[in-house]
């Protein structure tokens, strides 16, 4: 094949052009969102008829952000989401990895049956159990500072506890653990470590990648929760960010404030993603290796 530099340069240019055009398709709504959050409502709506929608021009201010905070307890919503997400992720990592450790390394009566049940739950979409689960949690007991109570509605725990353990997370851990060299675990045993010591001194320190994967997947699920908190949390005290959106659609809708709120709850995640994008992508890819 003859090498033609001009032609080569042109082909390269076309490739990048295609890649960039596609990139535009994926980011234009986000660019629109961020820019609009700085514009007053009437300009925002007028701008949508031209490319001005995507540039911060005209009457630019932070007024929408102030407005959003006035309209809704934004800080509280964010705090709730962070709290619920953080607690679930941490507890999930601990409890799912422990269970997976047991499935991967220990031999016990009933293990295979229990593991099969856990794997079988993988094909139950949450949406199919949301209603009966709602019924269930509305009747569960809880012992708190005020003594015995019935019903979990309108609490943090109802947003956290049902989401801690799930088949996919356990499965990912089991797969990873089975890939660890078995001799490391045996060496630990011969050196006198108890199973608990094997877990936290040998297996956990070697599980960085799967911990990151599990944490990211859980984070995405939890931070973006919508249906579940929508039906189990009526009090604003416990509402997470996605449900908090409802505040902006009562009475007159101020689109600028909506955009400010969306920007507030989305941009931190995007920044987080941009920093950890390799881990994010690897975590999604690793869910694909199952099957």
């Amino acid at each position: 094949m003859a090498f033609d530099p001009d032609n080569y340069g042109l082909r390269l240019f076309v490739r990048y052009l295609v890649l960039c055009l596609i990139a535009l398709i994926f980011i234009f709504p986000l660019v629109f969102m961020i820019n609009s959050s700085f514009k007053p409502d009437n300009q925002l709506l007028a701008d949508t008829s031209s490319l001005r929608a995507f540039v911060p021009v005209g009457d630019i201010s932070l007024n929408n952000y102030f407005g959003a905070f006035r309209r809704a307890p934004v800080g509280l919503f964010v705090l709730n989401s962070v709290l619920v997400t953080g607690a679930t992720v941490l507890l999930s990592l601990l409890i799912c990895s422990l269970a997976a450790f047991s499935f991967a390394f220990l031999r016990w009566k009933g293990r295979d049956v229990v593991f099969s049940i856990v794997i079988a739950t993988l094909i139950i979409p949450f949406e199919t159990i949301a209603i009966p689960l709602l019924l269930l949690v509305s009747k569960l007991p809880w012992i708190g500072l005020e003594g015995l109570q019935w019903g979990w509605l309108n609490t943090y725990r109802v947003q956290i506890i049902p989401w801690i353990a799930d088949g996919l997370t356990i499965f990912l851990f089991v797969q990873y653990f089975k890939g660890l060299p078995g001799e490391l675990i045996e060496a630990g045993r011969v050196e006198g470590a108890s199973w608990w010591q094997v877990y936290y001194r040998i297996v956990m320190p070697l599980s960085g990648p799967v911990l990151a994967t599990a944490a990211i997947l859980k984070f995405l699920v939890m931070y973006n929760q919508y249906l579940w908190p929508l039906i189990v949390v009526q009090q604003e005290t416990y509402r997470p960010v996605m449900v908090g959106l409802g505040y902006f659609f009562q009475l007159n809708v101020a689109w600028g404030e909506v955009m400010a709120y969306l920007t507030l709850i989305t941009v931190p995640v995007l920044i987080f993603y941009l920093f950890l994008q390799r881990a994010f992508i690897a975590s999604i890819a690793s869910t694909g290796v199952k099957g």
Partner: peptide, 23 residues
């Protein structure tokens, strides 16, 4: 040990996925 390690996770899955499913 096996049951102790697996129990928290399994109990949660059982209560919040399996049970509602049969519900």
């Amino acid at each position: 040990t096996g049951w102790t390690f697996a129990l928290p996770g399994f109990a949660l899955i059982f209560t919040f996925i399996v049970l509602p499913f049969f519900f």
